[in-house]
């Protein structure tokens, strides 16, 4: 590629903005709010992460209880967009009702849809997931489905109106990283125009960088930061890793090979 003449400005890079359901999301790191040692560390971690959004949940409130309001204030002060979840729901019906309650309480149509099949693996119950996604779509929700790398499930979710998919890397809270890189790569190739967020099971920033290098659009993680020895420092590390992985993807990673290819030219070696 020819260099531009020095008196012309370099072409501006097209801004690399993540857009989901027609809205710009300011960063590609989404983080959960659970399991932190304290509300202060949570708030500092969200800042250090430069989080694009945070996930929250709904749980039973006590009479005269202020926990919910205190948490809502904390979240508002963070100034970050909120994505409520339907964690703990095992059926489409439970998830739909939870989403409706979340929409009213958090005043957003965005919902992280979780329908869980098994309490050990916390794997998505994909049939209920698609049902719930369809019904919630009809009710005007913007659904972010927590799913697997299964291509046919992805196909169904897109058909019922989802405009983003959130496949797991590994079981929630397992810290294993990307258990099925081949499956995730296949999914990325199958739906090139769809925002894809790796959600669940990440443990180290290198896992997040790997996901971004595959071309995933964002990562959602909670335990990896909250359960780090230094959550605030880990949050910053994840933010940096996601930036690096995204840049690498845009820069075009060299193709790997099995045998060596010398970098230093062979021509002109001294014969000694």
């Amino acid at each position: 590629m020819n260099a531009l003449p020095p008196d012309r400005p370099a072409p501006a890079q097209a801004p690399d903005v993540l857009s989901i359901y027609g809205e710009a999301v300011p960063s590609r790191l989404f983080i959960g709010t659970a399991l932190y040692p304290s509300p202060a560390i949570l708030a500092d971690s969200v800042t250090a992460a430069r989080a694009g959004l945070v996930t929250v949940s709904l749980r039973r409130e006590q009479a005269r209880g202020r926990t919910g309001e205190r948490f809502l204030s904390l979240v508002r002060e963070m100034g970050v967009r909120v994505l409520p979840n339907t964690a703990g729901c095992h059926t489409a019906k439970e998830a739909i009702t939870t989403a409706q309650m979340a929409r009213e309480l958090f005043d957003t149509a965005w919902i992280k849809l979780e329908v869980i099949a098994d309490d050990d693996t916390l794997q998505p119950e994909v049939i209920g997931l698609v049902e719930a996604a369809q019904e919630l779509g009809r009710q005007g929700f913007k659904v972010f489905p927590y799913t697997t790398e299964d291509l046919s499930v992805a196909d169904h979710l897109l058909k019922v109106g989802c405009e983003v998919l959130m496949p797991w890397g590994a079981p929630i809270g397992s810290g294993r990283g990307l258990n099925n890189i081949y499956g995730l790569r296949a999914l990325r190739a199958r739906v090139p125009g769809v925002p894809l967020v790796v959600d669940a099971g990440l443990g180290a920033p290198s896992h997040a960088a790997a996901a971004m290098e595959l071309g995933y659009d964002a990562c959602l993680l909670n335990t990896a930061i909250a359960k780090a020895a230094d959550p605030v420092r880990m949050a910053a590390a994840f933010a940096d890793a996601i930036d690096a992985g995204r840049s690498a993807y845009l820069a075009g990673i060299m193709p790997p090979r099995d045998m060596a290819a010398p970098s230093t030219p062979m021509a002109g070696r001294a014969v000694l």
Partner: peptide, 10 residues
Amino acid sequence: VEVVSARVGG
């Protein structure tokens, strides 16, 4: 009757 409010979540 279920009465819920905002909580932390992943």
